[in-house]
Design a protein around this nucleic acid. Sequence first.
DNA 1: ACCCGACTAGACTTATCAGTCTATTATTGG
DNA 2: CCAATAATAGACTGATAAGTCTAGTCGGGT
Lengths: 195, 195
Amino acid sequence: MNNLSNRERLLEAATEVFLEHGYGASVDMLVSRAGVARQTFYNHFENKERLFAEAMRNCVSEMLVPLDEHAGDLRVSLTKFARVYRQRVLSPQSIAKFRIVASQAQRFPEVTSEEYAQGLGRMLNRLTEFFREVITDGRMREAEPGFAAEMLLSMLAGVERTRMLFGVACPPQDEAARVGQIVDGFLRMFAVVEE
Amino acid sequence: MNNLSNRERLLEAATEVFLEHGYGASVDMLVSRAGVARQTFYNHFENKERLFAEAMRNCVSEMLVPLDEHAGDLRVSLTKFARVYRQRVLSPQSIAKFRIVASQAQRFPEVTSEEYAQGLGRMLNRLTEFFREVITDGRMREAEPGFAAEMLLSMLAGVERTRMLFGVACPPQDEAARVGQIVDGFLRMFAVVEE
DNA sequence: ACCCGACTAGACTTATCAGTCTATTATTGG
DNA sequence: CCAATAATAGACTGATAAGTCTAGTCGGGT
């Protein structure tokens, strides 16, 4: 059935348990979730900290969203991107991970900064490149592409993410409409100015 | 000198210590920071959880930002607001608090949701009202005022707050210019459309 | 002078948890 | 079939921490 090595089982279990209970989850919880003996864990990992670091590293970059740069219509590209981005970044799992990682920023600065670099950082870089081209093509007005990237991602997951991080139930609204509103706003913000 | 009651001293110390070390800070740390005996703490508070809840409640609503609705120029009002909002919400203290509160969303759901209600929630309500009037006055295009409020706050503290939560050093840039860019973008987004 | 309430110092209890150790049991390659 | 390696269950240690308890101190009011 489960064709996973004990090490992989531990990593998977660690991801689940840490996201559920935070870094405070006990080693007993981890090993029993993995279905593995306590000592087996210490055979594969130096200690709890290392497992945590590896487990977190393990599931970054799952939230990188493709961006088909060759589509003709900017609105279509952005809408497609936005839908997937929000789906990933506002998922309960992503929210839980955000909480954990942010809360451990002092204890595990490397983990947290790598999480940023591999996740949001990369996303920003890709978008920036994309916007640079779009601007060159004259399909967006002259503007700092990095700024545009930050604004787009902020609008897509700003207040709403905060609400979810704080456990406030989001009013179930029409996701497609929401995405449309945001993309419209973004396009208006960076529309080509007619002289 | 310190004209504070022991109870107040404990609350102040708790705020400091919790923001510094998270909820895991020990009672010993709390009382020694407050300069008070262990038992004194238990005379004033039922347990650590209660102190945490009260301490967090104690320093909400310090981040509410005034919004002088009667200024003539929308750009001026927004710029003034934006500057103060960012100053408060991106301060190291606010970032630390955000981390703690978000990370305790399961253990203290009431604390977290009240934090939202008193902080971001109120801010959104005020802004929404403000934009409703501005739209009525014809100084902004027809749009959902609540949406405008969410976009503004998202743009003011979206990606940047995430970066700070993740402990990534923000490139020290010209704050005034940044605010200007954002407000400009917002105004373009919600500018009156000429027919 | 005396009392009473609040404070203090610190010992104590109980519990939890990370990490180690031991003895035992598969599993597997030669 | 044997030896080496890995896994298991569970006891053990040492540390830390929350909350209680005790005995003593201090200061103000009467």
